[in-house]
Design a protein around this nucleic acid. Structure first.
Length: 304
DNA sequence: CACCAGGCAAGCC
DNA sequence: GGCTTGCATGGT
């Protein structure tokens, strides 16, 4: 068994960090599988984004990943964990490959990694995701950061960090009008209050079982079952969580139920039974990317 | 114009 | 408990 984090080589060269020999890592898969909203394609095999107070341009060619203008300290303090380099995705994919549907899905998004994102940013981002589409979610999050985040300069350009709960807790719905979040503005303010007061915190939630953390998250107005599952998976790295959205519902109906409509609860139960306690989140991400690549539920679903 | 988008809360029974 | 409806905004 190969372990990505053991065989890969990390080199500091001039102002860049360069990685050779990384496996199961593809920027397109990572940034287009629906887990994050602040990364944009800025060139051929290149993405630029902001996370945990730092901006980054990252590019990838056949044999190397380049973290541009990145001090070693920032790479090891922030990006190594953010990109989940300590996890062996080869072993995860091996375990999922018993299932023929997963084998097919992993042909499409085999380079996915579940990012270790900031919890608070994940809470707000997925509150905004409710009854929304991904381009518009990205727009709202970006306006939120531009209006209330802090400036950070990277490679001569200004970026905005994700605003702290303390900052947002002081705002009114009118103040949030500029981000055009619609009915979700009151939910953002409620979440900010709970995180600023300490009623909810990353430290507290990370000590809870997934079930308890989910209950606690659902005390936030605007956080229901689906959004809570996304926060568990993307904000707390609970890979037992299996968020069922319209894409997952469609792809699973198509691949596992012969195309017949099924209620969300039945799909969740099926996934829990099939993928078990720890693989559900990974399976969900491979399926989500697969569904979107093949536009399941739209005019191109015949391609499968 | 209607309908939908990574749902949810509130109001019904 | 389960089921229905309104919700802001923007794209097709």
């Amino acid at each position: 068994m190969w372990y990505t984090y053991l065989i890969m080589e990390i080199i500091a060269e001039k102002s860049d960090i360069i990685i050779h020999g990384a496996r199961d890592f593809d920027l397109t898969h990572i940034f287009e599988c629906g887990q994050c909203f602040r990364w944009n394609r800025t060139g051929e095999n290149e993405y630029t984004g902001t996370a945990k107070g730092h901006a980054l341009t990252i590019s990838q060619s056949a044999d190397e990943i380049v973290f541009h203008d990145t001090p070693e300290r920032v790479f090891y303090d922030v990006w190594y964990d953010y990109f989940d380099f300590g996890t062996d995705y080869g072993a995860i994919k091996e375990r999922l490959s018993d299932d023929p549907v997963m084998r097919e899905a992993m042909k499409y998004g085999g380079g996915i990694r579940i990012l270790n994102q900031d919890l608070w940013e994940t809470v707000v981002s997925f509150i905004i995701s409710a009854s929304n589409n991904i381009p518009r979610i990205k727009g709202i999050v970006e306006r939120l950061c531009a209006a209330y985040g802090e400036e950070t300069v990277y490679r001569g350009d200004v970026y905005y960090t994700f605003p702290a709960a303390e900052r947002l807790s002081a705002l009114s719905r009118e103040d949030l009008g500029v981000i055009r979040a619609g009915f979700r503005d009151k939910y953002i303010i409620d979440a900010a209050g709970k995180f600023h007061s300490g009623e909810l915190s990353a430290q507290g939630l990370s000590k809870m079982t997934s079930q308890d953390a989910k209950k606690a998250l659902m005390t936030i107005s605007g956080v229901g079952n689906k959004v809570a599952n996304c926060i568990l998976l993307f904000g707390l790295h609970r890979t037992d969580a299996f968020p069922v959205d319209v894409w997952i519902k469609r792809i699973m109906e198509y691949c596992y139920f012969g195309g017949g409509k099924r209620p969300i609860n039945e799909i969740s139960a099926f996934a829990e039974d099939k993928f078990g306690k720890n693989l559900g989140g990974y399976a969900q991400q491979y399926l989500f990317f697969y569904a979107r690549e093949n536009k399941i539920g739209t005019d191109r679903e015949d391609v499968l």
